[in-house]
Design a protein around this nucleic acid. Structure first.
Lengths: 247, 247
DNA sequence: TTATTATCTAAGCAATTGCTTAGTTTTGTT
DNA sequence: AACAAAACTAAGCAATTGCTTAGATAATAA
């Protein structure tokens, strides 16, 4: 039996639009807002009965999703990268992603959700140069190449956008968005671990030196993220050169 | 003849409140908004006659200013430093500075004016450690001490606020506030020049090396501004130590 | 052709923002 | 005590913000 308009009409008085959409898309309540969860438990009996009815609905959807989520997230990531998190409004996202606000909220729940998906996409892209470093097995020279690759990666035409993660860490306050902060710190630690791994390829370095040098390299990378917006290409290359003189 | 309510009443229909306040405080039209200037020129005849009357007003003000501008700017600077420029609303400034919004606009013209005054004050404070570096005549070791002094300077209790200038550079987009960007770049160049000056105390360095090392040090300082918010004290000290191994 | 869902459109909401207004209160001078 | 200006208070404005609603339209399967 198909999930039909009759059931939807009956459920409407109990759930708002985005909840209904969520219900249709998935029964996964993970990350639902407390308000939504509270409402769900409050109407648990009715909810259960409708879920039963929903589970009976086996027919494929009449209309397939038209926009590709990865494509629109890529566009959103670009905007966040150029503008920063706070200065990017949902209306700007709507224009850049090419889908309307309702679809944004239906697919990603809220602005933060769009941003977190953008960070995930950013990770897949920067993984290209991280994998290059991982596979190079080239110790410090590999890390130096990573720095150059990173500068190339952060360019958009003549515009240098720095690192999306570093930009955002410096922009939002820790207490204002813990989820985002946690993700960003995780990301930074992954890069640091990679540096440690490559530094360990030099048997002459003991662990204390390696930890210090890893922090030193992270600091330089943080600096480059900002410097890339202010210094010219020659200066940036010189900075990398001097950075690696004694490693 | 005193500047009295009669003149003020007559001028009121031609000027808004903040212009009237400005008129009373000063005849300096520098940095007046184009709208204000246009209005001034538009009513130049009337304006000139009132200026004449104003110039005749020799009596001292009945009531002295009660709040100290430097004190309130110091408080504003602290807020901008902790929160960032955009995340600091005028209502928050009002609370922190302890004066009402009208007085803020009367004294500083707009939010940007408050921020620019805050940057000026920030400069007077960081000049303490810049002067220490300038007078130390201690080459690279003096610069290293400056790094440590900077970390101490950026602390507020256990909170590390980074560099007010670096924070803001990373937060606002270049095209969104040119006046602020210009001030911030000027500030950075002053510090770089100081580094160059100290590096030159080592006769063995030629100019090319010095320019490279100055950029390298600026990059490290930019990095520290962010790192100071994330890394612990030992890590920061290690970063500085490793940074100066290359010089 | 009909049913169903995806996606859109237009409008709206409450809160926040930078800034202004008009009148009131406070304070210091005469 | 009166006068004059500083500073305050309360309210307001237009624009922007994140997010929601209700109905309409488009696209696909049956």
């Amino acid at each position: 039996m198909a999930f039909n308009g009759f059931f939807l009409q009956i459920m409407k008085p109990f759930f708002n639009n985005t909840v209904l959409t969520s219900l249709k898309n998935s029964l996964n309540l993970e990350n639902s807002s407390p308000k939504t969860l509270k409402f769900f438990f409050k109407e648990s009996f009715l909810f259960l009965s409708y879920c039963l009815a929903l589970c009976c609905s086996l027919k494929t959807m009449a209309r397939k999703k038209q926009y590709n989520e990865e494509e629109v997230i890529q566009k959103a990531m670009g905007l966040f990268w150029r503008n920063g998190y706070e200065a990017t409004s949902v209306r700007m996202l709507e224009k850049e992603m090419g889908i309307n606000q309702f679809s944004i909220y239906a697919s990603f729940k809220n602005k933060q959700g769009v941003f977190l998906e953008s960070i995930k996409y950013y990770k897949t892209q920067i993984n290209i140069i991280k994998d290059k470093l991982r596979k190079s097995n080239n110790g410090v020279a590999g890390i130096q190449q990573y720095f150059s690759d990173f500068l190339e990666f952060s360019k958009e035409g003549s515009l240098c956008k720095g690192c999306l993660v570093t930009n955002t860490v410096n922009e939002i306050k820790e207490d204002s968005d813990e989820i985002i902060m946690t993700e960003l710190k995780k990301f930074a630690n992954e890069i640091r671990d990679l540096f440690v791994s490559n530094l360990k390829q030099d048997d002459s370095k003991d662990n204390t030196i390696i930890e210090k040098q890893a922090d030193y390299l992270m600091n330089s990378l943080l600096g480059l993220s900002i410097a890339s917006k202010v210094f010219n290409q020659n200066q940036l290359e010189d900075i990398i050169e001097v950075t690696f003189l004694n490693l």
